[in-house]
Lab assay of single mutants.
Amino acid sequence: MEVRTIKVFTTVDNINLHTQVVDMSMTYGQQFGPTYLDGADVTKIKPHNSHEGKTFYVLPNDDTLRVEAFEYYHTTDPSFLGRYMSALNHTKKWKYPQVNGLTSIKWADNNCYLATALLTLQQIELKFNPPALQDAYYRARAGEAANFCALILAYCNKTVGELGDVRETMSYLFQHANLDSCKRVLNVVCKTCGQQQTTLKGVEAVMYMGTLSYEQFKKGVQIPCTCGKQATKYLVQQESPFVMMSAPPAQYELKHGTFTCASEYTGNYQCGHYKHITSKETLYCIDGALLTKSSEYKGPITDVFYKENSYTTTIK
């Protein structure tokens, strides 16, 4: 009895394709271990004539594949690729409408935090270190965002349907971005203890939790000093293409032309909904596939993004 075979390709990165001759009487799992086709788990399936010449994702289970996976995804987590594939199996079914010149995501599976993050990423200057993220990001900007969303979920250790947080998501993504040249110098002034300067680099240099107003941050924000008295913390120097200011959701007025974009969060910790506000020729609110415009805006804002380049204080 002759062994019926077909020729397929296996890959971990969709760049390096490895030619395989597979036995049609055995499952993919018996031949390769966990195997995925377009995100779908085909591990328990036997090869079919229609699979001839198709590319299958496999887990990096030998040295060659491990090197290829690390170079593309910059992670050695053995569960990463499987999590990416199972997320992709959902995100490829989502709709990605162009809204006001940006790629958004039609609401499904509690994905409003991903839509808000995706919209924000198209408006701030950011370059990702893992080629996987950078490639998928370019495709997302062009309207094909399924891979990018699935990668975000995998890097953030999230599953489809789980509630997510924009600030946490951005923080994970910033860790995989090139923020080497970003720098922030802060000064804390206390009447009792004097003053202390701190220099922050990388992710810490672009994120701040405690106030939404970048102007206020430049002037000074009140913080408790270690001595128990009130101290003032203010920005001395900022070198970065953008800054992200966050605070627990509270009524906040966004003035046209003073910011790049913002995240609105309605609801409580267990259950809520994100919308995205962007400042173009007027203010726009993007909620999944829905767009509304207004000249002014007041609502429960939790993150505001500002364009920056270089700032030095005039406070002496």
Rank of each mutant, 00 (worst) to 15 (best):
N129R: 15
A117M: 11
V3H: 13
L118C: 07
V160T: 02
I277D: 00
N110A: 02
G164R: 06
L114C: 02
G29I: 02
N157F: 06
D180H: 11
I105Y: 06
D41S: 13
D63R: 02
A69N: 09
E296M: 00
Y57T: 09
C261T: 00
K229E: 10
L102C: 03
T192M: 09
K93N: 13
P78N: 09
S279A: 04
K275I: 06
Q31E: 08
E71V: 08
Q123I: 06
E168M: 12
V206D: 00
Y96H: 04
Q195N: 13
H18I: 04
V243P: 02
T258Q: 12
K92F: 12
T226V: 15
Y137V: 06
D77W: 05
V3G: 13
T226S: 13
G29Y: 09
K201T: 14
E71L: 03
K201M: 15
Y72N: 10
K255W: 06
V22R: 04
L291H: 14
N100F: 06
N16Q: 09
V22S: 11
Q122E: 02
C285R: 01
Q238K: 03
Q195H: 10
N178K: 11
Y57H: 12
Y113T: 03
G267D: 01
H48I: 13
S263I: 01
K127N: 11
I277V: 07
T199Q: 09
R167P: 01
T292R: 07
T302M: 02
E2I: 10
S263Q: 00
P131N: 07
K255D: 00
T27K: 09
M209K: 10
A154F: 03
Q196I: 10
D180R: 02
T19R: 14
Y96G: 09
E162P: 00
M244R: 05
C182E: 01
G53P: 07
R184Y: 00
F174N: 00
T5K: 10
F9E: 11
N89H: 11
E308N: 08
T302S: 07
F174G: 00
A115V: 07
D23G: 12
L235K: 03
D303H: 00
F70E: 08
K201S: 12
C225N: 02
D13V: 01
Y138A: 15
K183I: 10
D165S: 11
N110V: 06
S50E: 14
V8F: 07
P248C: 06
S79Y: 09
G272W: 01
L254Q: 05
K201P: 02
T211A: 06
T10C: 13
T282Q: 09
S295I: 09
C156A: 08
T313C: 15
Q270P: 04
C190E: 04
K191P: 15
M207A: 03
T10L: 13
T278N: 03
L119A: 05
Y208V: 04
M24W: 07
